[in-house]
Amino acid sequence: MSSAVAEPELAAQFDATVRRKDRIEPRDWMPDAYRKTVVRQVAQHAHSEIIGMQPEGQWIGRAPSLRRKAILLAKVQDEAGHGLYLYSATETLGVSRDELTEMLISGRQKYSSIFNYPALSYADVGTIGWLVDGAAICNQVPLCRTSFGPYGRAMIRICKEESFHQRQGFELLMTMMRGTDEQRAMVQESVNRFWWPALMMFGPPDDASPNTEQSMAWGIKTHTNDELRQRFVDMSVPQAKALGVTFPDPDLKWNEERQAHDFGQPDWDEFWDVVKGNGPCNAQRIAHRKQACDDGAWVREAAMAFAEKQKVATA
C-alpha cells in the first residue's frame, strides 16, 4: 500500500498537467471544483444534444422529400449518439446518466437555450443546421483539446459528425434558394428568427460570464464567449452572402481597422428570460423528455429483470 500524498502536492501536479496542456484523466486527482465544473459543462452539453433532437425531430415526419427525410432522421439519430457519448464522459467521473436525466427534468441542470425556440417551417431544419450547428461547431472544435480527456475524445467524434450536420443544413437552404419565391421567403424568415438566438448560444458577454475565467485557467474552456461569437459572425457573413440572405442586424458591417465585423448585441434580457425558463418551448421540451423517460421505465426495468433471470439460470 503506498502512502497517501498530501493535497497541496497533488494540486501542484494537477496544475502542472493542465499548464503543459496535457489531459486530466478520470482517475487522476483533481480539485473538487474542477470535477464539478466538468460534470456541469459536459452534462449541459449532453442535455443540449438530447433536447436538441426535438425541434428538428418533429419535422422528420413532414420532410418534403425522401432524401431529406433520410438525412434528417440520420442527423437527429446522430444527436442521440452525441448525447450518449457525452453522458459516458460524465460517467467516468461517477455521475450516471439517470442522475443527470433527473437533474435535467427537475430543472437543476440546463441545456442550450436555443432549443427553447420553436422550429416553425421546414426551412428551420436548414437554418438550425447552418447557424445553430455552425455556432455549436465554433464552440466545440476547441473543446477537442479540452483538458478533461474523456470529454475531448467524445468531442473529436462529435465534431466530425457535426460538420456533416452543418453542411446538410447549408445545402438545404441553398437548394431552397434556387426554388420558388415562397421557398426563398421561407428561408429568409427562418434566418431572421434564428440569427439572434444563434448569437446567444455563445453565452453572455465576457463581463457577465462569471465562470469563464476559472474554466479557461483549467483548460476546460479555451476561448471566451465574445471571442467565439466574433469568430462565428465573421464566418457566417460570407456564407449568408453566398446564400443570398441577410441577417436582421442594421449594425452589422465590416470594420477595416479591426479586420472583423461589428455587430449589434442580442437582447440579453430575452436571453436571461429564456435561460430562467420563460422561453417559448421550455416547458414543452422538458415535458417531452420526461414523458419518454417515464414511458420507457417499464422497458428498462423489464430488461434488467430478464438479465437477472438469465444470470440465475446460467449460475
Partner: peptide, 9 residues
C-alpha cells in the same frame, strides 16, 4: 425518435 425507452433504443 426522441421518445424511445433509452438512448440506445
Amino acid at each position: 425518435c426522441s421518445r424511445a425507452p433509452d438512448l440506445e433504443e
